[in-house]
Simulated assay, not measured.
Amino acid sequence: MVELNTLVGVLKAAGEDTRLRLLALLAEGDHTVKDLTEILRQSQPRVSRHLKLLADAGLVRRNAEGAWAYYGLTQEGDAAALAQWLVARIDNDATRKRDRERQNASRAAQQAQAADYFAKVAGSWDELRALHVPESAVEAAVLEALGGRAVDLLIDLGTGTGRMLEVLTGLYKRGIGIDSSREMLAVARAKLIAASIGHAQVRLGDIAELDPAIGPADVVVLHQVLHYFDDPGRMLAQAKRLLKPDGSILIVDFAPHDHEFLRAEQAHRRLGLSSAQMDGWAAALGLRVALEREFPSGSGADGLTVCLWRLTATGSSNTQLDR
């Protein structure tokens, strides 16, 4: 039961036009202060002040990443339930609709920036990745994580040049790779043909808006994909929609780091993903982290550590490994 003083404080924090609009935006995914100022058409100090009041009341959470900070709706507890209740009741408001249109435009612009980058580097993508991650060790671990499982359908989201379809070719009966970059897919198709991999195909598509009819899949792979999105939790929710009830999501991405240049030069949005964040995103989807491994770069403090996670249903009998 919520104490009266706590409830009054939460209601006061939420009971203002701009703060309600912020709650509604954050209910649909994480945003930076910059994103929110552009969507709301308000100044940075004003938006920051409202976010602080919401955070102090436990309605939103803040996650600092280098020079940026991401805000999202609190996922658990009475404050989270109240925020969702309030947001549901303003969904058809005219101002809310305009905010959502601006939010969609902001996300489209970010995805276009990433697409431009991928188009430029498609031909040398595999070599570029090999510069900063121990690819052979990670790929061996990916194989081990799925070894022994019968995989009728594997879906690789953000497939890029199709490398995961190549690496895992012996484990699945049918593979589908989806990517929004035509240039990347051209490289992927050529590689699959050269390797005589006839049981996999790649498709052009927006992995942020997936058709569940593509599945259901035994395994969904997100290999070096999530750091290109402001809200990885939203992307994981898309991946879950494609899964069989006993399916697994396999994720490879960077651990938290402070290399700001990757945002400007390589279109990264998040500076790595932490274990705590992955646990939270999984729990919000009714999943759990069944496997986690880290692969340091070997380049000292300036190197990038790569992480491997496998997410499964909370009731799954999969054994917890390497946490």
Rank of each mutant, 00 (worst) to 15 (best):
M1V: 09
M1A: 05
E3P: 06
T6S: 00
T6G: 02
L7C: 04
V8A: 10
A13V: 01
A14E: 00
L22Y: 00
L23E: 05
L25A: 02
L25V: 03
L26V: 02
A27V: 01
V33G: 03
K34M: 11
K34Q: 15
K34E: 15
I39L: 01
L40Q: 04
S43T: 07
Q44W: 02
S48M: 11
S48W: 01
R49Y: 08
D56L: 13
G58D: 01
V60A: 09
R61T: 12
A64I: 10
A64W: 02
Y70E: 04
Y70Q: 07
Y71D: 00
Y71F: 08
G72Q: 07
L73G: 00
T74S: 10
D78R: 14
A79S: 05
A80F: 06
A80V: 15
V87G: 02
V87W: 01
R89Q: 07
N92M: 11
D93Q: 10
A94M: 05
R96M: 04
R100K: 05
A105G: 04
A109C: 07
Q110F: 07
Q113H: 14
A115I: 07
D116C: 04
F118M: 10
G123K: 04
S124W: 12
D126V: 07
H132I: 10
H132T: 06
V133H: 12
V133T: 15
S136A: 09
V138R: 11
A140N: 11
A141K: 14
A141N: 10
A150Y: 13
L154H: 10
T159G: 00
G162Y: 03
M164F: 13
L168Q: 06
T169L: 06
G170R: 12
Y172Q: 13
I176M: 08
G177Q: 06
G177T: 15
I178Y: 06
D179R: 09
R182T: 05
A186R: 07
V187G: 04
A190L: 03
L192K: 12
A194W: 08
A195R: 13
I197S: 05
G198F: 15
V202I: 04
R203L: 15
R203S: 14
L204N: 05
I207W: 03
E209C: 07
E209L: 15
L210W: 02
P212F: 04
A213G: 04
L222D: 05
H227K: 00
D230A: 13
D230S: 11
R234N: 11
M235K: 08
A237N: 01
Q238D: 06
K240S: 06
R241H: 08
L242Y: 06
K244M: 13
P245F: 06
P245Q: 02
S248L: 06
S248R: 09
I249T: 12
I251L: 06
L262N: 11
H268W: 10
R270T: 00
R270D: 00
R270G: 00
S275M: 13
Q277A: 14
A282K: 09
A284H: 04
A284Y: 07
L285Y: 08
G286T: 00
R288G: 13
E294Y: 12
S297I: 08
D302R: 03
L304N: 05
V306Q: 13
V306P: 07
C307I: 10
L308V: 00
L308E: 05
R310H: 09
T312S: 10
T312W: 14
T314R: 10
Q320L: 11
Q320I: 13
D322C: 14
R323N: 14
